[in-house]
Design a protein around this nucleic acid. Sequence first.
DNA 1: TTGTAGGCGTTATCAC
DNA 2: GTGATAACGCCTACAA
Lengths: 342, 342
Amino acid sequence: MKRTNQPTINDVARIAGVSKKTVSRVINQSPLLNADTRKRVEDVIAELGYVPNPQARALALRRNFLIGLIHDNPNAQMVLNVQQGMLEVLRDTEFELIVHPVNRGSPTMLADIGQFLERQRPFGVMILPPISENDQMAALCGELGVRYVRMGSAPLDEAPHMVASNDREAVRGAVEHLIESGHKRIGLVQGPHGFRSAFERQKGYEEAIEAAGLPLQRTLIVQGDYKFESGMRAAEQLLDLAPRPTAVFASNDEMAAGVLHVARQRGLNVPQDLSIIGFDDTPIASHLWPPLTTVRWPIATMARAAALKLVSGEGGTAEEDGEASLFVSTLIRRASVAPAAG
Amino acid sequence: MKRTNQPTINDVARIAGVSKKTVSRVINQSPLLNADTRKRVEDVIAELGYVPNPQARALALRRNFLIGLIHDNPNAQMVLNVQQGMLEVLRDTEFELIVHPVNRGSPTMLADIGQFLERQRPFGVMILPPISENDQMAALCGELGVRYVRMGSAPLDEAPHMVASNDREAVRGAVEHLIESGHKRIGLVQGPHGFRSAFERQKGYEEAIEAAGLPLQRTLIVQGDYKFESGMRAAEQLLDLAPRPTAVFASNDEMAAGVLHVARQRGLNVPQDLSIIGFDDTPIASHLWPPLTTVRWPIATMARAAALKLVSGEGGTAEEDGEASLFVSTLIRRASVAPAAG
DNA sequence: TTGTAGGCGTTATCAC
DNA sequence: GTGATAACGCCTACAA
């Protein structure tokens, strides 16, 4: 950044023949201002192309206009949808979005985040799952006085700090859909251990099975880690079973794609021989063959709500603070589910 | 952000019994400093947990430590890979990444970007394709004194402002691979009109066809727009041809997935009846069945190089400015290509 | 090697 | 309504 001769508030004040403070008042829409004066100042501002310096504002106001997005790359589409949702809200404000991925797994993760928060002192941060499930992180934000909103698969914080989807209910609905289609042996490809989303989705599966009076068989539940390959491994295991499950619910689309992949390799027809449901409704779901029945959760909507919570009240578009914090997911029915044979 | 009693440089100075300037020197690693004094100040800093305020620094230095990322959502995976690559470089610096998606199509796009640049005055910006192809944008950065690096499918700016892949060559290689496999009727699903990447990839296709002495048939070239559905439409058109093409090169993976999708619908076997090659090596490519042969370009590497160019010299890790600016893509051979039948 | 004075561009205080 | 004056936290002169 060179020495660009950007005009300052002083230039405006001098040329308009008023004091800095008056210009400041114009910028900040102070109501007690002579209309003439305001007009004059506004003209000068337009003429000079003056733009207030955010750094200086931040310094004087002892606060800045940065919203952080902290995540651990849960999946590209999700991160981007979140960014998009948040930016839709931020666009009309003076806030900017600064992204800060971290490395779950790293033992210094919490310290890293602490450093980030202390350095930048963002006005607020949005935390994506799975690290949003870490209560210490939330506590850290609290201590440092940084607003935060967590995104998760269940309400795990107070409403002002949370946007949650109800994964359990959504999965129950999905599995019920399979049951209604006549399936009795339904496999579950679980998400990784320790993830709240994985836990909730498993609970949803179990609730549906039990509510239908079907036996809950441990062999039908296989551990995955949300990655494609783990879906393949799980499928190997499930399809080796005798009798074979006639349907599989995978806790996310990637793993569902893995299941589909293996079914194909084995010469099975989907959905005739095996019905599959995924979760997330990532683009891959609709691009697979057959298109995947899956659960769509309203990520962008949740992100917008989160951004609104973060900037609401002081500083942002003074929106209702009572933004919804629980969002419902919907089952997207495509071609990967068929009635159970026999 | 509440009134947190974060210690300032003054607190440190007072407690350490030195002047602000001395503390400042410690922070900025000034060499001319008594070791004792330095030690004493450092101790106080550690004790207080003092962290310099970036806003104040930015103000005093008349520059900030923000790197912008401007894009128009070309595709989620790519944007995220870029973010990751850039952040790897930025992590060890005092720079932060601030993302700024824009809306190509919007008539006010250029104005929007101008506003963003004038408000934030980022130290530098990275511009992703396709908007990186817009020369006016680059000019705008130049005028405003904002460093910039463009990412593109061909060198369309001077080295310090460019990280480019050589799409033409990469595609030529891919199509040659098809030709070597015995294919003579090879379809092309083009990218959208006006995109440099689309143009380069088409040229690569044409060069390979011509170099092999094959006829360049206009009916084998179908327009797409980089989206899945357009790949499907293109496939419909290509597969209606008589005789049918035995192979298709699609200018990106999403369209290739669309082609695969339609081939399936028509009961064609891939790759026996139809070979397909895509471009990008997005996750979808390896998750499809059969896994897609495609061209991988080193996005993260390019992003790292770009970030290095942006922060190099003044302010950043004083790296060589002579970072590479042309990167080679490689053909990833998977299962969607087979020798031509007959 | 260290300190003093002044400025970066903005806002808050408190007079007029 | 408006304008001096003093912050905000840091850095660059220039002295000492």
